[in-house]
Design a protein around this nucleic acid. Sequence first.
DNA 1: GGTAGAATTTAATCTATGTTAACGTCATTA
DNA 2: TAATGACGTTAACATAGATTAAATTCTACC
Lengths: 256, 256
Amino acid sequence: MTSISNSDAALSIDLQPPAESSPLVRKLGSLCLMTADEIEFLEGLQNNTVVIEAGADFVAEGDTRSTTFILIEGWAIRYTALSDGRRQILSFAVPGDILGLHINFNAQATYSAAAMNKLKLAAVDPRRILEIYQKYPILASGLSWCTAREFAILGDQAVRLGRLPARARLAHLLLELWYRLELIGKNEGRWLEMPMTQLDLADTLGLSLVHTNRSLAGLRRSGLIEVKKDYIKLLDIEALTELSEFNPDHLAEFSI
Amino acid sequence: MTSISNSDAALSIDLQPPAESSPLVRKLGSLCLMTADEIEFLEGLQNNTVVIEAGADFVAEGDTRSTTFILIEGWAIRYTALSDGRRQILSFAVPGDILGLHINFNAQATYSAAAMNKLKLAAVDPRRILEIYQKYPILASGLSWCTAREFAILGDQAVRLGRLPARARLAHLLLELWYRLELIGKNEGRWLEMPMTQLDLADTLGLSLVHTNRSLAGLRRSGLIEVKKDYIKLLDIEALTELSEFNPDHLAEFSI
DNA sequence: GGTAGAATTTAATCTATGTTAACGTCATTA
DNA sequence: TAATGACGTTAACATAGATTAAATTCTACC
């Protein structure tokens, strides 16, 4: 907003999208050189914004109204609820992420989505996503990359849940979030934003609340992390990586 | 091959793809009405076939040569190997499934893929997938559906691993495979093809081999399944569904 | 048709994680 | 400043599932 004056006043020679652009445009812009046309289309997609209060669901499993959402501000979760009230969180979504990029038209949502904190998101007709593939080849590659990445993230989640012990699961997730936030420029020093409660963390890691707390304490006592309200500091990324067998290449950037 | 004579001799009025067509064409054909042009393109994609021996890897995690594979015959797995030799199988692929539908160009494969039994698959340049999106709108919707389905399958796998006890995990997986094979017409009565060993099953369910065997025995003793070499009979689908909280809608068909 | 190696089954023991319950801390509001 | 409620921490005990090992049954191959 303040930066408008700077692009007015000075001759802009930036090839990168301007600073006031959406997180999605910034994210894709750091990976591929989109045309002005493509950037404009992508920004235009995000005109219809919605605000969701912290804790509220904005997609419910079984919904037949399918909408694609682009996350602009705040964190969201995708999750599945079980009959006894327990939950499995499938993944976190951060600004620049797309929920429902590939939709079963005429089918039901296979998971619910909720806001971790106050959310701003763009509601997009999924038909416009197919339009991207038809008309904007660079964007299409970008979206294909997003899809592959979501797959890798969910696959890593399965590995965590299926084969890693509690502390490694936690370390692995912290590193995933670290690299994802890194890409959108949200890490400050080694402090990682952690807006979720330990109960949310437990439901992500497939652990009980108490054991999640124990695992957190374990990493803390080993000198690997430092914890404060809403933030965790990664004190030794190398050790965390080794402990959890995390592979950063799964989240690596690409370039065209 | 023998059926060529029938389409030569008689006047064909089928709207459905002919019987000798590929599993992928049959799968999509049961969901949407493709044009002759689209069917031809899809079959043409699968000209370059490869045979893989049982047990062999055909994608290794970290590979930078990215290829899309369409499974024509046999079963495959996607998996991640850990440093101590343990494995987490992410999902099974059956005829008609596509591996690497969305590829990170210039990036590494994030999982390995191996043949469960002898495999016939088509190797496709991933650029031709993007071509589909540009030129064949019906096919594009079909592929979008495939992607959403793969997501749902992997999400269900995360729920199994994170929140279900051993026997429910097993029941849940059996039902998933049941509905998937149903779609491609591979179920005989209530007998479900199970070409994997109990070790493979264990690596899918995130359990030890011994406990997988116990879980299998548990379901058998409860009268829910009957086991024979390479097949499992689902004796009580309703009870299995309730036990595992399986939701068949996740794999539901769609139609345009 | 016999044999070696693979796959399955069962039992005994151990451990990581779940469960329950109590207590602490902090922020909000009365 | 007290009361409340959400969230975090810790301890004691219970249990599902891991591990190890050995026996048994398949099955592919000679």
